[in-house]
Amino acid sequence: MRHTISVLVINEFGVLSRISGLFSGRGFNIESLSVAETLDPKISRMTIVTSGDDKVLEQINKQLNKLVNVIKVYDFTDEEHIERELALIKVTCNADSRAEILSIVDIFRAKVVDVSPRSYTVEITGDEEKIRAITELLRPFGIKEIVRTGRIAMARSPKQK
């Protein structure tokens, strides 16, 4: 099963390699990874997408917590949360296809962020499913290049009763 894990770490050189080394050294899987500073510049947040059974995830969680630089580990899986990725998709276009591409972009509430005579570059944010859906719809026009970020996630606030 796939899990999205958030790891708060001390923002020091080498901390990324400690985390990635832990995963590779123990045979854990990283499907995606994104890292950035938090509001406190001394602390970074890593969002890691990984997979494994409960036993593997328990070890991932414990092993991450054991690293001296790790402050907190949080698994979003059983929690209401928001997940987002961002993708830039450079799609081939011509006079015949422009309108149709733009309408797909519109339907997905994506944006065209660069235009050339033969291509659009589309920016899309959303969960993995949404990005896959637009990719599939744009594929027939000819995708020249696609760049995706790793996933980021945030827990939803508790709802008022």
Binding site: F13, G14, S17, R18, G21, L22, G25, V68, N69
Partner: peptide
Amino acid sequence: IVGITRPCTKHNYL
């Protein structure tokens, strides 16, 4: 050596 010993130390520093 910090890179080399990362997986076999409890922690290390440069």
